[in-house]
Design a protein around this nucleic acid. Structure first.
Lengths: 141, 141
DNA sequence: TAGCTTTTGAAACTCAATTTCAGTGGCTTG
DNA sequence: CAAGCCACTGAAATTGAGTTTCAAAAGCTA
């Protein structure tokens, strides 16, 4: 089941409504490969849909996170970011502190060591956050 | 050189002043094993020193981070936290999402893998953030 | 001690996030 | 397919952490 269907089904089961705005925001969000903040997505949407308000974008992104088709990221710049979630493709992030570029990485050995650490402290992991901050190749010259 | 001396020396070199408030805040901060937010440290200080203002606590914590005796943490609850920094003792965190307990962990093999990942993308790491969120043993029953 | 400069604390301000509310518009039922 | 309920929308107001302002207070240096 694709993410649009997951979202629509979530709306149904919660008794929420399938509105024009929500569909436009969903489409724009899924089309992008980007890690949008609310403000950034709002600005992109405004180009074609100037009537859609900031609050609606914000509420809709929250809904995406609630129904599991997006995750909320926070890179410490004071703005939450959202990315479309691929359940079969977990990854973490390299964040360039100069140009803002975000690189995704996968390292199963780190995931394994995380599980070991959690076990060591009798801790049940629900989620994690792992980011490396520094300079991407372009910005380190 | 202990952390109080590092701070005092930092004040000197920057032409800043060694004030009563700064010394009280430093002492209280270092005495605690805790990961205080500005608000929390402010509340603790208020008990014995009701005249110290929130802004002063905030500015002083920033100074601690600047001079390297503390690090700023962010666990995604919208409040920055600060912890005394031991330069010879890097660690990451397990954060209980129920009771807020914070457990520190050290896993050199993860650090090593991080370096490998960075190299893979020609990325120069300046810092990183690694947190596991879930239930501590008390809260998982 | 004088005098210059930084600091302090209260209050104001900033900015993203969130809430409010009156008007709008899906959706379901008869 | 019309009526009516209830969620939704968007603008504006509010919240809350963080930051800045400013006049009075307090360090520091000569």
């Amino acid at each position: 089941m694709d993410r649009a269907s997951v979202f629509n089904q979530y709306l149904r089961t919660k008794g929420l409504k399938n509105t024009r705005q929500r569909m436009i925001i969903l489409e724009t969000f899924l089309d992008s490969a980007s890690h949008y903040s609310t403000e950034e997505l709002y600005q992109v949407l405004r180009q074609d849909h100037p009537r859609i308000g900031y609050a609606t974008v914000h509420r809709t992104l929250k809904l995406f996170a609630e129904c599991g088709i997006a995750t909320e990221l926070n890179f410490g710049d004071g703005q939450a970011r959202f990315e479309p979630l691929y359940t079969d493709h977990h990854h973490d992030h390299l964040v360039c502190t100069r140009c803002g570029k975000i690189i995704e990485f996968v390292e199963p050995r780190i995931e394994q060591l995380q599980r070991e650490v959690a076990q060591r402290y009798d801790f049940t992991v629900e989620s994690h956050r792992h980011e490396l901050y520094g300079r991407c190749i372009k910005c380190s010259q």
